[in-house]
């Protein structure tokens, strides 16, 4: 490259003026590092511009740098202040959002708890309603029983305890017209497993027993009042303990209660 010709082209003057493209600036920077003459020429051009521009100045005050320095200082201190305040506000923001989030979670959990409590309560309510219905049903049942027992056609027979179980007792409410008998077995002990009570209608002369029925499902009948059909000309009722399913004739050794009809 012809350095002298390059210098003479006047491009370096434009370089110092700062009006060339970025590529040209980069290129000349490279040449300046490669060719000392080019670097020296650039510096000489710059020096002349420095003189000219200096001469054009009306003259700055001697301590003019102080103002710049104070502004620079301010800028720096403002920046540090900003740095100090920024985390403050951001922490505050974070704290607020954390508190908010915790509050939100708490509210959610609380809501959930309340929801499940409502579910439990409504479940309980349903259970209670069912119990009320059950009780109403029971009351109706009991009223029915009571009404049946109060019927004027009912004959009441007390059945007393026998040798095998002297403390046992029972009552028979026999409605002859309707041909049914209610046995109140409240005074009988719980039958052992595999056994059941059997009710007999007795004719006394001669002693003829006829099975009236079984007191099945003894333990689950809370009232211990059993309704059985009885079309017999009964003179006495007896209750024996028999193997499950009942027997054809009563086992007299297992006669728990017995009562004759008094007319």
């Amino acid at each position: 490259m012809d350095v002298k010709k390059y210098i003479a082209s006047g491009i370096l003057e434009l370089y110092v003026a700062g009006i060339l493209s970025e590529e040209q600036n980069l290129e000349i920077h490279g040449y300046a590092q490669k060719y000392p003459e080019i670097k020296a020429e650039i510096e000489a051009i710059e020096a002349s511009i420095l003189v000219i521009s200096e001469k054009s100045s009306p003259g700055l005050a001697k301590n003019s740098f102080k103002k710049v320095k104070s502004r620079v200082g301010k800028v720096v201190s403002i920046q540090t202040k900003e740095i100090k305040t920024t985390p403050w506000t951001s922490y505050l923001g974070w704290a607020a959002s954390i508190i908010f989030a915790v509050g939100l979670i708490w509210m959610y959990l609380e809501n959930d708890k309340l929801k499940s409590e409502i579910e439990i309560t409504s479940g309980e309510k349903q259970t209670l309603e069912e119990q009320i219905l059950d009780i109403r049903g029971e009351v109706t049942d009991k009223n029915n029983i009571l009404n049946q027992l109060r019927d004027k056609n009912v004959t009441v027979v007390s059945l007393g305890g026998q040798t095998i179980s002297p403390t046992s007792f029972a009552k028979a409410y026999w409605n002859k017209e309707q041909q049914k008998v209610f046995i109140d077995a409240q005074g009988l002990p719980e039958p052992p497993p595999g056994f059941t009570y059997q009710v007999w209608s007795l004719k006394l002369n001669p002693l003829t027993p006829t099975s009236v029925g079984l007191l099945d499902d003894f333990m689950n009948n809370e009232n211990r009042v059993f309704e059985l059909p009885n079309a017999n000309e009964t003179e006495a009722f007896g209750i024996t303990l028999e193997p499950e399913g009942g027997s054809k004739s009563p086992t007299l050794e297992q006669l728990y209660t017995l009562g004759a009809i008094t007319t």
Binding site: I49, L50, S53, E54, K55, S56, S57, P58, G59, L60, S64, F65
Partner: peptide
Amino acid sequence: YSENIYGVINT
């Protein structure tokens, strides 16, 4: 450079 810059701006 301050005088130069001042001169340029004032011009």
